[in-house]
């Protein structure tokens, strides 16, 4: 737990009308780990992801990435700094092929603009080849190289989830945030997913994960944060959290 701080939030809050989805949340994400955020339904986990990734603006508090404040920056700027995510309700580019999806992931790793592309500058051709090759590498990494020409929308659900992760990885992030990656997967697919997440960590990308599947969370996470009603109620390694009374109460709904 002594690895350097990668991303953290301070007093992060977000209201929706009168509802406080996040209340003064402090979250520390350290480099090189798999960290999980868990909590009962409506605890504010998805809001937390949306605020960190810049999809929605917080009503209070700050987000720091590698010590630099990124609160309220446009989403694409945050992404360019090395923080990307997946979505619980898949957001694939359904009409594009699997390979093209991953190639969009490499957007920040390339720079051909309107003008250079329209006139096909030689460096654009070279760049295009590099993007294609590296994207294929990412597909190989997740084991989808055989489906590169398939239209993404026609993939089975489990593969779509994996593809979204590959696409995120292609953007060369330092932190990959996974929003309920196991939702809708069967147990075999969940097992594959667990191994993949561990390999992602081993490749040097830190992972922050929101997940309902406790078995998955407890088996792969290095650190778990529990939130309830927008507030942090416990954190620590999986064992500590599992035996925490407040956590049990929150999940069992006792007062």
């Amino acid at each position: 737990m002594n690895s350097p701080l990668l991303m953290n939030t301070r007093n992060l809050s977000r209201d929706f009308g009168g509802v406080r989805a996040l209340r003064d949340l402090d979250l520390d994400v350290r480099q090189g780990l798999i960290q999980a955020v868990i909590g009962p339904n409506g605890a504010g986990k998805t809001t937390l992801f949306n605020v960190i990734s810049g999809v929605i603006v917080p009503t209070g508090g700050s987000v720091f990435f590698r010590g630099e404040e990124i609160t309220g920056l446009p989403t694409h700027k945050i992404a360019q700094k090395g923080l990307t995510r997946t979505f619980q309700n898949l957001q694939l580019f359904a009409d594009m092929t699997v390979l093209e999806n991953v190639m969009v992931g490499m957007h920040c790793m390339s720079k051909g603009g309107f003008f250079a592309s329209a006139f096909k500058a030689p460096w654009v051709i070279a760049e295009e080849r590099r993007v294609r090759d590296e994207s294929m590498e990412w597909l190989r990494f997740v084991g989808m190289e055989d489906h590169s020409a398939t239209v993404a929308g026609s993939l089975p659900f489990g593969s779509q989830r994996i593809l979204e992760m590959a696409r995120g990885l292609a953007s060369n992030p330092e932190l990959l945030m996974l929003d309920e990656p196991a939702a809708g997967l069967n147990s075999r697919e969940t097992g594959d997913l667990a191994r993949l997440i561990i390999r992602i960590k081993e490749s040097g990308v830190s992972v922050l994960l929101v997940e309902h599947d406790m078995e998955l969370v407890m088996s792969i996470s290095d650190h778990v944060t529990v939130i309830d009603q927008g507030h942090k109620i416990a954190e620590g390694d999986p064992e500590t959290v599992r035996s925490d009374e407040k956590v049990l109460k929150a999940y069992l709904g006792e007062e």
Binding site: Q91, F93, V104, H107, C108, G168
Partner: peptide
């Protein structure tokens, strides 16, 4: 790359933006 970005925006604006 530009054409891909355009089609990506068509597919999902939010997903495009989290990819930069």
């Amino acid at each position: 790359r530009v054409g891909r970005a355009l089609r990506a925006i068509h597919g999902s604006e939010v997903a495009s933006s989290v990819l930069g």
